[in-house]
Write a protein that binds this DNA or RNA. Structure first.
Lengths: 223, 223
DNA sequence: CTAGCATTCAAACGTTCGTTTGAAAGTCAT
DNA sequence: ATGACTTTCAAACGAACGTTTGAATGCTAG
């Protein structure tokens, strides 16, 4: 082994992943050609197939690189919340879920923000294998958070909780992916759009209230 | 002019639009080829370029066909709400916004449900011109609903309202577009997934609570 | 019937796509 | 230095794409 400063291992792989993250966000998967991608990454056209096998495998790798750590952070946050008090407060559970996402949003220098927008789009991606990848990655996380919320809100019917989690999930994903809409409503680009701390307060307040919305009769009856 | 039963005017156009709606929803815009599309529609390959000019113009036409009536219905609903009582209740305003969407969701026979999923994806579409089309179509609707909510919630800071509208908008769009997620949370496919009446109750309860969430200190300070 | 227009059709156009190939260059232990 | 890998490279592959073309067909008014 050499004593030289560590020459980045798999530097080509990393450069491809970084370029892919940005271009997939900008143009989508299909519209991003391997020639454009390898050009931006500064590598040979054949490098993607050599290092990843195919374009589709590259797409999966882009997701796995960020998604696994993010979900680990979510589970770790939930561990901490549950260790501190039982039963946990719904608000603390919500924060454990959304704060790893917002941390990535703050990462404008690295590709974190790019990735979050990419992820928000992936939930509604037409390509089935991509949705499946997302689904598989999220399944254990969903189970844990669902159980935690069931414990924190014992009076809520199960199917109503499922829908409210769905709503919460959608709000988070969409809020961060659809940057145009908030400008559309506001009429101009707000300066604090990516003040993650303030955004976390706003999201938490909204989601917490929605999660604890009073149960109407029609909903109770259906439960 | 003939006395025969009206032979559908522009039947080819309609068949193309219907096929496009379904295929764009299933596979996305880029992944849907003109050959597959015209094959499903039962028309000649050149028909799309003859009737619409280009693939991209067809995409726009698919959106315009449904979006304009839907937004008209929203404005009509808001008119009715505002005529009945001033100031209007936030809940009635929310219902005026979401119920035209849910009516389309119930239209499983026609392409309404397909279109809603397509629309949910369009907000995060990488293709800029599509997002712009959506934005232009929604701008007047957004202005009206924003004004209505400002009037209904005079105590809420403007920028907080903008964000909460963004959250609401996201919840609606995402809920209807990402059909996989609710299955992921629930663990199985719920039977009543598309019971529009029940879904409207659930959505309204969630959104109304979120919109009226208590203002935290940090938010008040930023306002 | 026929001239004029709208629509349909099969065939082909040029381009771009993801991937493959086989040789060249780089890397490292022995 | 040498041999065995790994990695890069320029070039090419066949396939599929959106679009165009010009002839054929359908329809309607005069």
């Amino acid at each position: 082994m050499s004593l030289r400063a560590v020459k980045p291992q798999h530097e080509t792989r990393t450069r491809i992943l970084d370029a892919a993250e940005e271009l997939f966000m900008q143009h989508g998967f299909e519209a991003t050609s391997m020639r454009l991608l390898t050009g931006k990454a500064g590598v040979n056209l054949a490098a993607v197939n050599y290092h990843f096998g195919s374009k589709h495998a590259l797409i999966e790798a882009v997701f796995r690189r960020r998604l696994d750590p993010m979900n680990q952070a979510r589970l770790a946050g939930l561990d901490k919340v549950e260790a501190e008090s039982r039963p946990s407060s719904p608000e603390a559970i919500i924060r454990a879920f959304i704060s790893p996402t917002l941390e990535l949003v703050q990462d404008a220098k690295g590709g974190g923000r790019n990735f979050i927008r990419l992820l928000g789009r992936a939930y509604t991606e037409p390509t089935k294998s991509i949705r499946q990848l997302i689904g598989q990655t999220y399944a254990p996380v969903m189970d844990r958070f669902k159980a935690a919320l069931e414990c924190a809100l014992p009076q809520m019917p199960r199917d109503e909780l499922v829908w409210r989690m769905h709503f919460m999930f959608g709000t988070l994903a969409y809020t961060l992916a659809a940057t145009d809409t908030v400008q559309l409503i506001a009429g101009c680009k707000p300066e604090d759009r990516y003040d993650a701390a303030l955004l976390e307060e706003r999201l938490t307040a909204f989601l917490h209230a929605g999660l604890n919305a009073p149960l109407k009769n029609s909903i109770r009856k259906a439960a």
